[in-house]
């Protein structure tokens, strides 16, 4: 059928556009500079080299950076999921004065570009004595307006009869939230967790601003050092990109079943 051919043609072009750059990146991290310049039309290395990976390994305290990244992105994501879902529960399930105002305030924060608040936030962290500390790194990012928004939408799609049944059994709000709503919200949790984790993992500016100590540097911050001023070593830069991408890719392929299923059943409406 022509529509079917058309459909697969469209999807096929899209796939090529998406996959080729990714393959090129991975392959490029194994290519020599001469190979890159000599065969710009090539996708696969003509001669393989580990120069890029060796460069990254020898110049970075790699495990330390990795550990910091996991710590920062992991703890912050866990807190975000907890705080966002609690906040969303109140917004979706409780009736109280000021609910609309609270919801709008949350939405407004979604509209603030990070660069705008950078300097005031830095000064605040200073007054709190939180610069160069893990709480300074984690607490300000431990909630996200987008997550609250997503949870709220999801919770509203859960039939209210379920809460009422629980309430008849004498459950309070905390119990309903923890025992009824959250277990049903696994797909939303997966979605918010994955999106937050990738955002935090990829964040470069924030860790740099909060900590000046090399002991607290995260992976992207460490890798940014290779974007040096003078000579671009493509293999090292691409190797850095692949390395920082790898954990995300693993997390993504592990979580994607829940995630795709999650965002599908969440019925965002």
């Amino acid at each position: 059928m022509p529509t079917k051919t058309l459909k697969w043609f469209y999807v096929g072009i899209g796939l090529i556009l998406v996959l080729v750059p990714i393959v090129w990146t991975v392959a490029g991290s194994f290519r020599t500079e001469a190979d890159l310049f000599g065969h710009p039309a090539g996708l696969i290395p003509h001669q393989w080299t580990l120069h890029g990976y060796r460069g990254v390994w020898s110049q970075l305290p790699f495990l330390r950076l990795l550990g910091n990244s996991v710590l920062f992105a992991g703890i912050t994501t866990a807190l975000t999921v907890l705080f966002d879902s609690m906040c969303a529960y109140a917004l979706a399930r409780l009736n109280f004065r000021g609910r609309d105002v609270a919801f709008w305030l949350v939405l407004v924060t979604l509209m603030v570009p990070f660069q705008v608040t950078l300097i005031p936030v830095f000064v605040e962290l200073f007054h709190l004595g939180w610069l160069n500390t893990y709480q300074g790194l984690i607490v300000p990012r431990a909630t996200s307006a987008f997550g609250i928004f997503l949870f709220r939408q999801f919770f509203m799609s859960i039939p209210r009869e379920l809460d009422e049944a629980a309430r008849i059994d004498g459950a309070g709000h905390l119990r309903i939230y923890w025992r009824v709503i959250l277990p049903l919200a696994k797909p939303a949790i997966a979605t918010v967790a994955l999106l937050n984790f990738t955002n935090l993992w990829n964040d470069l500016l924030w860790p740099l601003v909060v900590s000046s100590s090399p002991d607290m540097q995260t992976l992207p911050a460490g890798l940014a050092l290779f974007g040096g001023q003078h000579v671009t070593d493509h293999a090292v830069l691409l190797a850095g990109a692949v390395i920082s991408l790898l954990p995300i890719a693993v997390a993504f392929f592990l979580a994607q079943r829940y995630f795709v299923a999650g965002i599908s059943t969440s019925g965002l409406k």
Partner: peptide, 30 residues
């Protein structure tokens, strides 16, 4: 009962207030 919603929203609102809303007001001052 009145306090309950704010307990649920407390952590998020506090963080957003201190680290996003107040700084944006400060930037207006700047």
């Amino acid at each position: 009962t009145k306090a309950r919603p704010w307990l649920f929203m407390g952590p998020s609102l506090l963080i957003l207030g201190v680290f996003v809303l107040w700084p944006i007001v400060q930037s207006l001052w700047y």
